[in-house]
Simulated scan of single mutants.
Amino acid sequence: MAQSASLTRAEVAAMIDHTLLAPDATDAAVAAAIADAQALGVLAVCVSPSMLPVRASGLVVATVAGFPSGKHHSLVKGAEARLAIDQGASEVDMVIDIGAARAGDYAAVLADVVTVREAIGDRALLKVIIESAALSDEQIVQVCQVAERAGAEFVKTSTGFHPAGGATAHAVRVMAETVGGRLGIKASGGIRTAEAAAEMIAAGATRLGLSRSREVLEGFPARARVSEGDSGSASNT
């Protein structure tokens, strides 16, 4: 737990999008997820666009577009994102056409992201899901550069639904080196422990997409630890 020891529970909570994107999610499940997010003090709650609008006092409301395959027409993604903003979302996580990226058709990826960016204007923050586990390092670099050119505020590793896998510290590191702090980096997909979350943050993640936020946060101390040479004491609970 050495990596997570320097991070407090509140610091990590401020980076979390508490996420419920299961296809069988009910209104009751979404309400419960929002209540959990509020109790945990996380930054945001991310739900499917069909579940909007929601009441989520004190939370940023995020949603997805073109999720999870990315194989939606760009105009459909744009319309989905715009409707979500009209229904109260203030952040949109869009999935690119992964096949276009794998084929090296970065012009198509650029047009895809630009279409969504133009559809929502400056009314919402745009995160671009690149499905990093399905891409080579060079493809990750190219797609991150495209997302920046298109005006996105974040690049995001994964949907969590792709058979190739979810977030890895290596992919986050490549993404961080590419965008150089100009864009945020959201690590999402398969992050289930405090150790994994701390590893992503150390690699450069500035936001975490988690469905098991409580379990992850319980692995971080409530207060900052103090060294033996410091006076006083601090709780590690």
Rank of each mutant, 00 (worst) to 15 (best):
M1P: 15
Q3G: 07
S6C: 11
L7R: 11
A10M: 05
A10P: 01
A13D: 13
M15Q: 03
T26G: 06
D27C: 09
D36Q: 14
Q38T: 13
A44D: 09
C46W: 10
V47K: 02
M51E: 05
V54D: 05
F67E: 01
S69Y: 10
S69E: 02
G70T: 01
G70W: 00
H73I: 06
S74T: 03
L75I: 08
L75Q: 09
L75S: 05
G78Q: 03
L83E: 12
L83H: 09
A84W: 01
I85E: 09
D86R: 08
S90K: 12
D93A: 06
V95P: 00
I96C: 01
D97C: 12
I98Y: 04
A101Q: 08
G104S: 10
G104Y: 04
D105C: 06
Y106I: 15
Y106G: 08
A108W: 09
L110T: 10
V116N: 01
V116H: 00
V116T: 03
E118D: 15
I120S: 12
G121P: 11
D122V: 06
I129L: 03
S132D: 09
A134P: 07
L135C: 14
L135S: 07
L135G: 08
V146H: 03
R149T: 11
A152E: 01
F154Q: 02
K156M: 10
T157C: 03
S158Q: 05
S158Y: 08
T159E: 08
H162R: 06
H162N: 14
P163Y: 09
G165E: 07
T168E: 12
T168N: 07
A169G: 07
A171I: 07
A171E: 02
R173Q: 15
V179Q: 04
G180F: 11
G180R: 11
L183Y: 00
L183Q: 01
G184E: 03
I185V: 15
A187Q: 06
S188T: 07
G190V: 01
I191M: 01
R192H: 14
A202M: 11
T206M: 09
R207M: 10
L210K: 13
L210D: 09
L210Y: 13
S211G: 13
V216A: 08
V216K: 09
F220P: 04
R225P: 11
E228Y: 12
G232N: 08
S233V: 15
